[in-house]
Design a protein around this nucleic acid. Structure first.
Lengths: 261, 261
DNA sequence: CACGCATACTCGTATAGACGAGTGGGCAAG
DNA sequence: CTTGCCCACTCGTCTATACGAGTATGCGTG
């Protein structure tokens, strides 16, 4: 065990930088330099109070800065730890290509298996409901829609929450309205129903999660979400599905390939 | 002026939910319901202390929750305000299409002018430097690169910070190495130099900003950044540029169009 | 009228103390 | 040896107080 003074310098009383920021700076730098590694426990609040000669609230204030930056997370009764970077899922722009649909299993399962993770899909809900104004506009002024909700987990950790919306005149009474849409997913079913897919539009935003998203995705504080809204169009240029997806940002890298046309 | 009790209910002492969370919940709900509108001032700390009968630190704690969610921001000496949603810039996936390059001005300027904003590009730095390991790998094992750094502002607000990296054997001694790369930007120059562009690859991540990014982009707390890394390939499949971009997430929506192939 | 200052209000920082609750190790009883 | 409890250590919540610093307003002086 290295002593604290050797890891963490002292304060500069002449500086106009707030004490809790100075402490946060030193901890951040120590983490960046690898003095504390992923998953490692930082000094306890009491130790830092002792080391810097400040009050406990000041130390906690420093920790809350680092938590907001997504650098550390606290565990009640244990300590404050450097947040490990989880394995990321790479979403390639060809992930919905027809050739990937030929096989039986869902894209998520196939891909995760290949990466050596244990995938799981849960909290599936399929029901008809009133379309929000936004969804209605995207689907071309429909009033009611079929909504398919599901949550994706990797190795037990929830990473993504998605809802697909489809016009009732397309989906009602088909296998799309069943909990299990069958091999190749709903896109395969849509094509069987004569809606040959032409292209997708994806809109991407990033923001902090709402409390309910924090709960659903078990997000640590300081982890934003990626909000992706995909609209699928058939060859008649008709929007046939809107998929609204919220992803834990620390678990994803999105990748797109664009022609220079 | 509506009285506080009519806007904000009371606490539930029997609940096991922390008091500061209950207060945050009530404020959040009031904001969501539009009882406080964008840019509007929330009750001051003192007023909430009075209303709830709690200590000031507890109220501040509530505010810090909402700040972390990006819902509100505090202004020293003035108050705490509902954070206004700034106008967003829409980045379409065809924004680098050759046809947009024919004109004289940069894509950023043209687009912002059209949207009625006042665009500005500043802090331009152009220099040769050693490639980081990541940049080197993306450009095909080059050791040194030309780096072009610039910051984009809309109506005085910095929204994006970008660095382009180009292999020296391509860029050195050309107009690309000048502060002003000329009409159509560096992509136009690359094509003139015989590197006809074939396609781009974009990688997208979202995360909380580093302290230096907070400074450069004047980010409020609770605003994540979108980190976009674009690699441009010429028709020989050679990577000719890597552009590393950090954007204020509340100012952008990215939009992509994908073929269903 | 114009300027400058006092003042009241805002949030920012920091201290000191108290109690609660989750975790894990050690020790004593069975 | 196993079980169960106690205790020490951790972070979580909350109070009460103090002073500093930025902002806006109004009033009095020139």
């Amino acid at each position: 065990m290295t002593s604290l003074p050797s890891l963490l310098g002292g304060l500069d009383p002449t500086s106009d930088r707030a004490v809790f920021r100075q402490i946060a700076d030193q901890l951040r730098e120590a983490i960046d330099r690898g003095r504390f590694t992923e998953g490692e426990k930082l000094p306890s609040e009491a130790e830092l109070v002792e080391h810097y000669g400040v009050s406990r609230m000041t130390v906690r204030n420093s920790f809350s800065v680092l938590q907001g930056e997504g650098l550390v997370h606290a565990e009640h009764g244990k300590g404050v730890f450097v947040r490990p970077r989880p394995p990321v899922r790479r979403l390639a722009s060809d992930r919905f290509a027809r050739r990937h649909r030929e096989q039986g299993k869902s894209a998520f399962i196939v891909e995760a298996d290949a990466a050596g993770s244990h995938p799981k899909v849960d909290s599936l809900e399929v029901k008809e409901e009133k379309a929000t104004q936004d969804i209605s506009a995207r689907l071309g002024s429909v009033r009611r829609v079929l909504a398919r909700r599901r949550r994706y987990l990797l190795d037990g950790r929830p990473v993504e929450f998605a809802t697909s919306y489809l016009p009732l005149d397309i989906a009602r009474g088909t296998q799309i309205a069943e909990p299990n849409p069958g091999p190749g997913g709903i896109y395969a079913r849509l094509e069987e129903l004569g809606h040959r897919l032409d292209h997708f539009e994806e809109e991407i935003r990033a923001r902090m999660p709402s409390p309910s998203e924090v709960k659903t995705l078990h997000l640590a504080s300081g982890v934003p979400v990626i909000h992706l809204i995909r609209t699928a169009y058939d060859t008649e240029k008709r929007p046939v599905e809107v998929c609204d997806t919220v992803m834990a940002a620390d678990a994803y890298v999105l990748s797109y390939q664009l022609p220079a046309t």
